[in-house]
């Protein structure tokens, strides 16, 4: 008896929670949280720095779907905050914003399906675009600081949104494609 077997590997399963999704979520969150220790101060600013780890949020979303992306951002940011001494839940709305970034990057098949099915270079480009879009949109959620912290609209814009988004857009545009480039052939080889 000869049988071709190919257990679930279709894109319609974006919202299905398999063991794979659970494990990648946990790994994404831990890696993001840990790698947040790497911070490169942006010249000419005091409290703005590039955080290469941020690229992971979009990468995990883009490569493994919205659930993995959301968990990576949400829990990973909480872990990073905890390790830096800020406290895991002190800025839970920021963690949620990170989660939304991963989620939106994970929805890439809805708006970048063409690139995702293309060559490896196109996939990498798709990753960069998804990362940038997700960062710009996801961090809109930090305006909840107006409610929670009593911040002013412009204050959020100038002291929070712009610095964070500028740094993270740069990071996403560079780190996500690098990871896609390396991961794609490996995933292909492991091809379950």
């Amino acid at each position: 008896m000869t049988a071709m077997v190919s257990p679930g590997n279709s894109r319609s399963t974006m919202w299905e929670v398999t063991s794979r999704v659970v494990v990648y979520s946990a790994i994404g969150a831990v890696l993001y949280g840990l790698l947040l220790v790497i911070q490169l101060p942006l010249p000419g600013t005091q409290n703005v720095s590039l955080r290469p780890a941020f690229g992971l949020v979009s990468f995990f979303g883009y490569a493994f779907g919205p659930i993995v992306g959301f968990f990576t951002g949400l829990v990973g940011n909480a872990i990073g905050d905890q390790l830096s001494g800020w406290g895991a839940l002190t800025s839970w709305n920021w963690s949620l914003a990170n989660g939304f970034v991963g989620l939106i990057a994970g929805l890439a098949p809805l708006y970048l399906a063409r690139l995702m099915d293309g060559t490896i270079a196109q996939k990498a480009l798709g990753g960069a675009i998804a990362g940038i879009v997700a960062t710009l949109v996801g961090f809109l959620f930090i305006w909840t600081d107006m409610l929670i912290g009593g911040m002013d609209f412009n204050s959020v814009l100038i002291t929070e949104y712009i610095p964070v988004v500028v740094g993270n857009v740069i990071v996403s545009a560079i780190v996500v494609p690098i990871l896609v480039f390396i991961w794609a052939p490996i995933q292909e080889r492991m091809g379950r």
Binding site: M1, A3, M4, V5, S6, R192
Partner: peptide, 22 residues
């Protein structure tokens, strides 16, 4: 894990306590 987690071409049969693994 074959055939439930790995894709490929499978030949023959594997039985556990008389029941086919597949």
């Amino acid at each position: 894990l074959i055939p439930h987690a790995y894709s490929g071409t499978r030949e023959g049969e594997v039985r556990v306590e008389g029941r086919a693994v597949a």
